[in-house]
Every structure is written in structure tokens, then in C-alpha cells.
């Protein structure tokens, strides 16, 4: 699941070297935290959060394929 988010984020930002994804178990689900360079925040969030929400939708599929639940936070 982190591979998916990392791939998307690295493909969208100007500075892929600053992309970090960490996973933490939390309340029975996998919580992912994505961080990118400050200048790239807008690229992974998008207008009205559209990019972030699209990543969450795809993450939901990745998680359910493994019988899990996941959440994504951009920090």
C-alpha cells in the first residue's frame, strides 16, 4: 500500500527525493503518512483536496485487496 502512495507521489512532485511514506498500525487499520517537500504540498493535495482524495480512493482498493483498511494523511 505504501508502494502505491509512494509511486503516485513521486510521479507528481517536482522533488521525488523528498517523498517519504511511513505506515503505522492504528485502531485496527493501517495509517499511512505521506510527506513531500513544502513546495510540492499542493501537487499531492490538489484543489479542494482532489488529488489527496483520489489517492485515498485507490488506497482503499489496495487495502481491501489484502483484507485490510487503510487511511492516508499528508503531513
Amino acid at each position: 500500500m505504501d508502494e502505491l502512495i509512494e509511486y503516485i507521489a513521486k510521479s507528481l512532485v517536482e522533488d521525488p527525493t523528498q517523498v517519504r511514506v511511513s505506515t503505522h498500525p492504528r485502531h485496527g487499520e493501517v495509517h499511512l503518512e505521506l510527506s513531500v517537500a513544502d513546495e510540492d504540498m499542493g501537487r499531492v493535495i490538489g484543489r479542494k483536496g482532489r488529488v489527496a482524495n483520489s489517492m485515498r480512493a485507490l488506497l482503499r482498493v489496495a487495502a481491501s485487496q489484502r483484507g485490510e483498511r487503510a487511511s492516508l494523511e499528508i503531513t
Binding site: 483520489s54 489517492m55 480512493a57
Partner: peptide
């Protein structure tokens, strides 16, 4: 919605 997200990304 999921298909739209996939298309958008």
C-alpha cells in the same frame, strides 16, 4: 468514484 480517481491520477 474509484474509476474517476484512477482516471484522474
Amino acid at each position: 468514484e474509484t474509476l474517476s480517481a484512477l482516471q484522474y491520477i
